[in-house]
Simulated assay, not measured.
Amino acid sequence: METESMEYRYLGISGLKVSVLGFGNMTSSWAEGSEDWNFNCTDKCIRNGVNFFDTAEIYGLGVAETILGKNIKQGGYDRDDLIITTKLNPSGFGIQGLSRKRMRQAIDNSLERMQLDYVDVLYIHKFDPEVPLEESIRVINEIIDNDKAFYWGTSDFTPQQISECFAICEKHGWIPPIVEQCEYHMFDRGTFERDYAPVFDQYGLGTTVWSPLCQGFLSGRYNDGNIPEGRLINSPFLDYFKECYDKYIGSRKEAAIRTLTGLKTVADELGCSQAQLAIAWVIKNPDVSTAIMGASSPRHLDDNLGAVDAMKKLTPEILARIEDLLGNRPTPSMNWRNFTPNTPRR
């Protein structure tokens, strides 16, 4: 169900139209611990025009898929209005990785957990170095031929691996991917804005980006440089969280505080929250098809949904101020066609 307050974009060069904000339920297997809370998040998203819902078999080893399926069934929503995606992971379910044997069974297991006949997009969730990529892509096409998925994509592939996917599909006449799911936020820009740019241009690839708030560090709750008490205390991702904290804040605390408090000032002037500003900045990028929101409490979801309105306030002048605060615009790759000796690099 589309709403006037939500913006929708085509997912790559496909005819699939997705809300610019999506909902990811990775935390559903451990956050809050309430089925009512999980359903209310899904329902609130749909009522606010969100039509894109992302999950994966690895999230809670199937628990997140089960929760999403229950929520959809409980709400009685029109399946045609929703874009449901899941991901098959090379680890976590035995030793067979992304082999034809396991993928054929894995999609059936995922659909059974979600109580669905099909998913709209099926991702290869990380590159599997132990299985020929051609084998995985062949079975993805079989899954599409059997109407268990309509499109497919990659998740956290390198640009080179994505190009290999297209080469394999062209060789065999197979359906190519339409989307890459990757990390993108104010603190980590190089991979998305520089490394993936040629792939976006060459193949018209869509993107469903994750962690637009950088583990919550851009939400405003870390502006003093410290971790709030009790943060992720029950999370199975605590080690990863600490690693990210050290990378983006702990190792450069003074600079990070200046950036974060500066962003707070800009957000206050625009009349939005700092979290809304950070997400709005991400979806302002035309190479972003949808930004996947997570939520560890209902109030966070309410706040994040306001990012679409905040995006409309990002004028060129405001974006320039944000660039000055971030100071991390990626350096473009050298264009050797236009390079001559003794010409200054730009």
Rank of each mutant, 00 (worst) to 15 (best):
residue 131 V to D: 00
residue 17 K to N: 09
residue 147 D to V: 15
residue 2 E to Y: 11
residue 18 V to A: 09
residue 208 T to S: 11
residue 212 P to G: 11
residue 234 N to W: 05
residue 5 S to K: 13
residue 113 R to D: 01
residue 274 Q to H: 09
residue 225 G to H: 03
residue 137 I to P: 00
residue 157 F to Y: 15
residue 259 T to K: 03
residue 119 V to R: 00
residue 19 S to L: 07
residue 332 P to E: 03
residue 226 N to F: 04
residue 142 E to F: 00
residue 227 I to M: 04
residue 281 W to E: 01
residue 37 W to C: 08
residue 183 E to L: 14
residue 302 D to Q: 09
residue 95 I to C: 13
residue 31 A to R: 00
residue 144 I to N: 00
residue 29 S to L: 02
residue 275 A to E: 04
residue 141 N to P: 02
residue 108 D to A: 10
residue 50 V to A: 02
residue 320 A to E: 15
residue 191 T to H: 09
residue 28 S to G: 12
residue 133 L to V: 11
residue 159 P to G: 06
residue 271 G to Q: 12
residue 342 N to L: 10
residue 159 P to C: 12
residue 188 D to Y: 13
residue 212 P to L: 06
residue 173 G to H: 08
residue 128 D to P: 00
residue 221 R to A: 15
residue 309 D to Q: 14
residue 331 T to G: 04
residue 188 D to G: 13
residue 200 F to E: 06
residue 197 A to V: 15
residue 175 I to V: 13
residue 191 T to E: 10
residue 176 P to E: 08
residue 263 L to C: 08
residue 136 S to F: 00
residue 220 G to V: 02
residue 225 G to A: 10
residue 201 D to H: 14
residue 338 N to R: 13
residue 132 P to G: 11
residue 223 N to S: 15
residue 48 N to A: 10
residue 131 V to S: 02
residue 97 G to W: 00
residue 46 I to E: 01
residue 87 K to F: 09
residue 74 Q to Y: 04
residue 99 S to M: 06
residue 224 D to V: 14
residue 62 G to C: 12
residue 259 T to M: 07
residue 170 E to W: 06
residue 199 V to F: 07
residue 130 E to D: 12
residue 300 H to W: 05
residue 206 G to S: 09
residue 185 H to N: 11
residue 306 G to D: 00
residue 106 A to P: 00
residue 330 P to L: 10
residue 250 G to W: 03
residue 333 S to K: 10
residue 159 P to D: 04
residue 332 P to S: 10
residue 147 D to E: 13
residue 187 F to P: 05
residue 296 S to H: 14
residue 31 A to K: 04
residue 16 L to G: 03
residue 196 Y to V: 09
residue 153 G to E: 01
residue 155 S to Y: 04
residue 244 C to N: 10
residue 206 G to F: 06
residue 329 R to M: 12
residue 238 L to F: 11
residue 327 G to L: 07
residue 340 T to W: 06
residue 74 Q to S: 07
residue 283 I to A: 03
residue 51 N to R: 02
residue 92 G to Q: 08
residue 211 S to I: 06
residue 217 F to C: 03
residue 43 D to I: 08
residue 335 N to L: 13
residue 205 L to N: 06
residue 259 T to Y: 00
residue 129 P to V: 14
residue 90 P to F: 09
residue 81 D to N: 07
residue 31 A to L: 02
residue 314 L to N: 01
residue 324 D to G: 11
residue 112 E to C: 15
residue 238 L to T: 09
residue 226 N to P: 06
residue 209 V to S: 02
residue 291 A to F: 07
residue 142 E to G: 00
residue 281 W to Q: 01
residue 144 I to V: 12
residue 104 R to D: 08
residue 138 R to M: 15
residue 249 I to H: 05
residue 10 Y to M: 05
residue 50 V to M: 02
residue 334 M to G: 05
residue 326 L to Q: 04
residue 336 W to M: 13
residue 230 G to F: 08
residue 346 R to Y: 11
residue 278 A to P: 05
residue 119 V to L: 04
residue 299 R to H: 11
residue 194 R to A: 04
residue 200 F to D: 05
residue 271 G to H: 10
residue 26 M to D: 09
residue 318 I to R: 02
residue 297 S to V: 15
residue 346 R to F: 13
residue 264 K to A: 14
residue 284 K to F: 09
residue 195 D to L: 14
residue 69 G to R: 00
residue 21 L to H: 02
residue 194 R to W: 03
residue 215 Q to M: 07
residue 32 E to A: 11
residue 129 P to S: 08
residue 112 E to N: 15
residue 168 I to D: 00
residue 55 T to K: 01
residue 217 F to M: 12
